[in-house]
Computed example of a mutant assay.
Amino acid sequence: MSLRILRTDIPDVLILEPKVFGDDRGFFFESFNIKQFEEATGLTETFVQDNHSRSSHNVLRGLHYQIRHPQGKLVRVVAGSVFDVAVDLRKSSPTFGKWVGATLSAQNKRQLWVPAGFAHGFLVTSDSAEFLYKTTDYWHAEDERSIAWDDADLNITWPISGRPILSTKDSQSPTFRKATDLYS
């Protein structure tokens, strides 16, 4: 199998490591193969949308989620590096309110599976980063919500000193407690 799965502290969030074939000419790997994904993870997901973003150093995007149309996300970095975070918002889960983080980079070629029912965000740790993600549902602007990146209850250990660069929307995000009171 050319896909290795690494478990995180939240069992449903997975790190995927593809087998990379490289020599002095460069490298090759399958960035996505549904059969290998299903065999390696035991998941049967349908991806309906691919997204691509580029951000500068210290840009933090998130923590985003959708309420009526939760999205599972398979995320990866094709240029640069990010610290990627998933926060469990599933109230019935034993890991509700817990987070996991992983470094994703063009160099390590790792991918992170973030299941539906999680908030997701990332911090660019290189000069810039290009971030790709597949989603299991479409983006619905009216359903999108966010949680403050620096929420005291979540206590995420972002690898940054000082404040990140945030969008206006992300700088006005509510706390985890306020956000999850509204989340069903």
Rank of each mutant, 00 (worst) to 15 (best):
R61D: 06
R4W: 10
G72Q: 05
L123I: 07
S171K: 08
H120S: 07
R7C: 02
R25V: 10
L16V: 04
L123K: 13
E45H: 08
V114N: 01
R163H: 09
H57N: 13
N58Y: 02
D181E: 15
L60H: 09
A141Y: 11
P94S: 11
Y183S: 04
L60K: 02
D137S: 15
F32A: 04
D153L: 05
F37L: 07
R4F: 13
P115G: 03
F83L: 03
S128K: 06
S128H: 14
V87A: 14
F83D: 01
D12C: 05
P11R: 13
R61W: 14
S92V: 05
A79S: 15
S126V: 08
V100Q: 06
A116E: 15
E142N: 10
T168C: 01
G42E: 07
F122N: 00
E38M: 07
G72F: 02
G121I: 03
E142G: 05
D23F: 03
P94E: 12
K98W: 00
F21D: 08
I67F: 09
T135G: 02
D84P: 01
F118I: 03
V85A: 00
Q71Y: 11
V13S: 05
A116L: 04
D9L: 07
D170E: 06
E39P: 00
S53Q: 11
G117E: 06
N33S: 11
T157S: 15
L14S: 01
F47Y: 15
T44I: 13
W149N: 04
F176R: 02
E142Y: 09
A79K: 15
V85C: 01
K73E: 14
D127P: 06
R163V: 04
R110F: 03
S81F: 12
Q172S: 12
L104V: 07
N155R: 08
G62V: 03
R163L: 11
S161M: 06
Q66F: 13
R177F: 10
E144C: 06
S92K: 14
A79T: 12
I34P: 13
S55N: 12
K109F: 05
I34Q: 15
Q172I: 00
A152T: 15
R68E: 13
L3H: 07
Q172T: 03
V77L: 02
G26V: 07
L43Q: 11
I10W: 02
I67M: 06
R68A: 09
T175A: 02
L182W: 08
W139R: 00
F122T: 00
K91I: 04
L60I: 10
A116G: 09
K19E: 14
V20T: 08
N58L: 07
I160K: 15
V100G: 11
G162L: 04
P94Q: 06
A86G: 07
H69G: 01
H57F: 14
T168F: 08
Q172H: 14
E144K: 11
K19I: 00
K73T: 04
N108S: 10
D9T: 06
G22A: 14
R90G: 13
I165C: 04
Q36G: 04
T8I: 09
N108I: 06
A102H: 03
S128I: 04
F21I: 01
V78R: 02
P159Y: 13
S184L: 13
V124N: 10
P115D: 05
L154G: 11
E30D: 10
T103H: 12
L132Q: 12
K35H: 12
H120I: 14
P94W: 11
P11Y: 05
D150W: 14
E130G: 04
